[in-house]
């Protein structure tokens, strides 16, 4: 077991070279975004990538404060532990956090169980994000997406241009050269910014481990009430997950590799209780992290479709 020591005042050289380079690159991108845009915002989605991103943002501007507001687009179906973690983090770090919910979607009764994952995600995430960005006039939104997550993400620029209406045109992306980012926007355009583009899932966990960054406890294995639904292990997080006849939660030792809306996020059986054990488990894993995401399975082009429409 490693001892987690707070990094303050310590020699940061303990970061492996590769992580140090990734860290510097991410900080460069964060500073560039803060300096160049009128109203940049950091999209905070509570997961491990967001935790790493927030940590990087703090380092990018230290000893000054993070000059960026945070936005969480809440579908109202996140795991309860995520919301508790979000509020505790905002409190602990004194963050300027806005939580946005698509109230219209709620009124229409959109939910992941009855509406299906595609519609729910579209209305409560994609639509909601667009509404929030428009409502607050954010011209650049920073997210924690990585290129190793998925095939269409692997194609995306670090500064990813969006035409009016948040449209991504993958056939016509801006060239991106050296460390020079074209941050100029036409009226109505906006930018999505991905400082973690070149990080892998393992890099993120290694970084979390070495920098002792707090993450939502759902990432760590422990016995949880689970039902099996079409091959996925779904956590019974509250009573909105109506149990079918004969369906009874069983206690399984599980953890989550990614976090999202709980009825749409499959757990994995695991014994990893510490960050070290997670890293070890990932090294041995034969499966990618998106395996547990139900929304990606519709077909292999589904992520690109969602992204073109403005999904993160």
């Amino acid at each position: 077991m490693t001892v987690h020591r707070q990094a303050a005042g310590q020699d940061v050289r303990t970061l492996p070279r590769r992580l140090a380079r990734l860290e510097a690159e991410a900080i460069h991108v964060l500073r560039e975004t803060a300096a160049e845009f009128n109203r940049p915002v950091l999209l905070y989605s509570i997961g491990k990538d967001s935790s790493a991103l927030l940590h990087l943002a703090a380092k990018a501007f230290r000893p000054a404060k993070i000059p960026l507001p945070l936005l969480h687009v809440d579908t109202t179906w996140k795991f309860r532990e995520m919301i508790a973690f979000r509020d505790a983090t905002a409190e602990r770090l004194g963050l300027d956090l806005t939580v946005y919910v698509n109230e219209e979607g709620l009124r229409q009764g959109i939910n992941p169980i009855d509406s299906g994952s595609a519609l729910h995600t579209h209305v409560m995430k994609t639509e909601a994000l667009r509404q929030a960005l428009d409502r607050y006039g954010f011209d650049a939104a920073i997210g924690g997406a990585r290129r190793d997550e998925e095939k269409s993400r692997a194609k995306e620029r670090i500064f990813s241009h969006r035409a009016a209406g948040h449209i991504w045109d993958p056939r016509n992306q801006r060239p991106e050269l050296w460390r020079l980012f074209n941050t100029n926007l036409k009226r109505g355009d906006s930018m999505r910014v991905f400082p973690l583009s070149n990080w892998t899932e393992l890099d993120v966990w290694d970084y979390i481990r070495l920098q002792a960054i707090p993450v939502v406890p759902l990432y760590f294995a422990k016995p949880r009430p689970i039902v099996r639904r079409s091959g996925n292990l779904i956590l019974v997080d509250d009573d909105r997950l109506r149990l079918g006849p004969g369906e009874a939660p069983e206690m399984l030792r599980v953890r989550f590799r990614t976090l999202g809306c709980y009825p749409l996020t499959g757990a994995i059986e695991s014994a990893a209780e510490t960050v070290e054990q997670i890293v070890e488990e990932l090294r041995a894993s034969r499966f990618s992290e998106r395996q547990g995401r139900i929304i990606d399975h519709d077909d292999s082009a589904s992520m690109e479709k969602k992204k073109r429409e403005g999904y993160f």
Partner: peptide, 28 residues
């Protein structure tokens, strides 16, 4: 595996750069 865009797969061409990450015991 690398042609991640719909147009690319349908037309069988590569339009934009794809980034992939892998490692061996000696280097990433």
């Amino acid at each position: 595996l690398v042609d991640g865009l719909e147009d690319e797969r349908e037309q069988g061409i590569t339009i934009d750069v794809a980034y992939r990450y892998f490692s061996t015991p000696r280097r990433a």
